[in-house]
Design a binder for these strands. Structure first.
Lengths: 158, 158
DNA sequence: CCCATATAGTTGTATATACAACTTATGTTT
DNA sequence: AAACATAAGTTGTATATACAACTATATGGG
């Protein structure tokens, strides 16, 4: 991430026009989603965590002190195609989670966040809060509205 | 991509709440951006193109019949961290672009889209149009509004 | 003109993503 | 209970991403 001043989509992508409002909307949501993810990822890097790893830790905290299975993690991840097995491997190496075979269904794997993991999450929480404060040009009402519009954008008959 | 019915963010990620409207907004834009990209990428796959490759072809068409340099491509790409050199390699292998050293500045590389590339783009254009028609639950006014809100979200003093 | 610096691309590498094939364990049928 | 089907993870692999190091060319002093 760089410290350059963000701009209108046309300036960002050096395009005069995007054809239709729908096209501009789609491109802009993709672009802005990537932009946000990079901004967060860049901040998380100082703690040695990727966006996905932080996401998994957050899910595990939501279950704590109960364990989560890989399946549960996967269905709650922001990017579901990420390989949960290998993400958890990484967290295990860093001592941020424990993993053991589930007693009553040996196909399953119980994963629990450690104290160290919880401590680290506290720190990354403040990153998130600091970043969110930078969106103050967006009013709380607009934030709600953006959320609703995103839900609506994904709405479609099955 | 699967044919499952999209849902509210809380249902998608099986979370009861997101703390603040800002957090929900941020997560929702990231999630929806990924969702859109996967939907497009999935459709493009039948033509053997990735989202980024299609993006590069579109940029080249914008310059056609003039050449574009790698630098120009890079600054207009949706994801600027993608490696333009290697993306162009792939397009070259498929005969969708030509590449040659620029005559008056030999550091530069001139890239031009081929007839075959233009033909292929026509086909992927229809994919894009078809997908855009699926957003009819969003009114044109809302589409404009989403675009404006995305611009505003990225707005920040340098 | 020579050297420092900047510019334009390329290459290398570690990590991440997408997707399919493969184990192992559980459930279901007959 | 043997056979088949499903479920939960794991592993393999090709491609893509992020980021840094490297090469080649151009430019601008002194």
């Amino acid at each position: 991430m760089n410290g350059r001043k963000p701009m209108k989509l046309e300036d960002e992508l050096k395009q005069k026009t995007f054809g239709s409002p729908y096209r501009r909307m789609v491109v802009n949501v993709m672009f802005t989603g990537n932009w946000l993810q990079k901004e967060f990822a860049c901040q998380l890097k100082q703690y040695g965590l990727s966006l996905q790893q932080n996401n998994v830790l957050g899910i595990l905290r939501g279950q704590y002190p109960n364990p989560a299975t890989l399946g549960l993690i996967q269905e709650r991840m922001l990017d579901r195609d990420s390989n949960a097995t290998r993400l958890v491997d990484k967290l295990l190496e860093k001592g941020l989670v424990t993993r053991c075979q589930c007693a009553d269904n040996r196909r399953k794997v119980d994963i629990v966040i450690t104290e160290k993991g919880l401590e680290l999450l506290k720190q990354t929480d403040t990153i998130m809060q600091n970043l969110e404060e930078k969106y103050s040009q967006i009013t709380p009402e607009e934030a709600v509205q953006i959320g609703e519009l995103m839900d609506k954008l994904r709405e479609r008959e099955g």
